[in-house]
């Protein structure tokens, strides 16, 4: 499917003056540079100034057949440089057809790379189910080997070499477990992830299903901050999600709030202030002490024992709960004033 449009033609000095320019319909003299190009089964001839390549692409000299003397060679070189100055040289890793475009006003070479880079931020569902059917250009990109190689590396954390990245992506997608990445005969098709999970992983603790209330109780974080998708439970009332997904989302949210707090403290008190240093050292991966059941949660011992500052407790709590509003921030600043007079 991958196709690449290249510009190829022959350029030389005619041996007779009997050929006629296809564009201006005038005879091409012996001293004039002649471009000859085969279109379908016809041979077309042009004066060099009359010729416009059919695609807006960088012209590679390796694709041309050149038979010119020194003077006409220089004239042709100027023409070629002038044409090529408008375009980027092609990337050898990218092969794609160049179609007519009607949206973004970008030169086509740049546009292709731009779109491939944009598609790398999307999921395979977005690309295959929606974007591929939008236009011919998007459809071509949805088959691009470079794009699938990048998606493969992103989703499966492995390098993909060769020209069949798309096939490899699909094979891996269907046959390998989402959690351990190993292909297995015993698996469960997970509708929430739209992927398979092998039985070993499915029976592990990380694949437990947690409902919204449990998430709030265990992690102390409001589920609206987590951007999670949920299963609908058997009785229809409970919204369930896998523990490993919840933990990843919680970790990300807490990391984000921590960075924000550190930034605010650095702006207000400087990065050498004690509180800024203490907050920077908080490990957001280790904020939940879970006992035998999810119903009995204790705060991290650091809060009560190691660092006695009230302001620290409040900041720690804000990071753990994944929420930081203006009122809370004002309180934190007041408490820091008290703790560090």
């Amino acid at each position: 499917m991958d196709t690449i449009f290249t510009i190829s033609f022959s350029v030389g000095l005619p041996k007779t003056s009997s050929t006629v320019c296809f564009n201006c319909h005038k005879k091409i003299q012996r001293s004039e540079i002649r471009v000859s190009k085969k279109k379908y089964d016809r041979q077309l001839y042009f004066h060099l100034p009359c010729y416009t390549p059919e695609h807006n692409l960088f012209i590679l000299v390796s694709n041309l057949t050149i038979d010119l003397d020194e003077n006409s060679g220089l004239i042709f070189e100027n023409w070629l440089n002038s044409w090529n100055s408008h375009f980027l040289p092609p990337d050898p890793n990218i092969s794609i057809a160049w179609n007519k475009t009607k949206s973004f006003e970008v030169p086509k070479c740049k546009r292709l790379r731009l779109l491939i880079n944009v598609f790398e931020f999307l999921t395979y569902q977005d690309i295959c189910c929606n974007l591929a059917s939008v236009s011919k250009e998007f459809y071509e990109i949805s088959w691009n080997n470079y794009l699938w190689g990048a998606l493969f590396q992103r989703d499966f954390n492995k390098l993909c070499e060769g020209n069949e990245c798309r096939k490899l992506y699909i094979d891996t997608f269907f046959n390998c477990c989402t959690r351990c990445g190993i292909s297995s005969n015993k698996y469960i098709r997970c509708t929430l992830l739209k992927r398979i999970i092998c039985k070993n992983c499915f029976e592990s603790k990380s694949c437990e299903l947690l409902d919204k209330n449990t998430i709030k109780r265990v992690y102390g974080i409001n589920t609206k901050y987590l951007n999670l998708k949920y299963h609908i439970g058997n009785n229809g009332n409970r919204r369930l999600c896998y523990k490993f997904l919840v933990e990843a989302a919680v970790k990300e949210r807490r990391g984000m709030i921590k960075n924000k707090v550190v930034q605010l403290l650095s702006d207000k008190y400087g990065s050498n202030h004690d509180m800024t240093k203490i907050v920077s050292s908080i490990d957001t991966n280790d904020m939940d002490q879970i006992r035998k059941t999810y119903y009995k949660i204790t705060y991290h011992p650091k809060i009560s024992n190691e660092i006695p500052y009230e302001s620290y407790k409040m900041i720690y709590s804000a990071i753990r709960n994944g929420g930081l509003n203006f009122a809370r921030l004002s309180k934190i600043y007041d408490l820091i004033k008290k703790d560090f007079p």
Partner: peptide, 24 residues
Amino acid sequence: LAKIACMFKYKDIETLRKEYGITE
């Protein structure tokens, strides 16, 4: 690039065609 990708996210085919003036 992420911002442009957001413009494409969760949009159906017709909406995308309309928004980007794709008539083909």
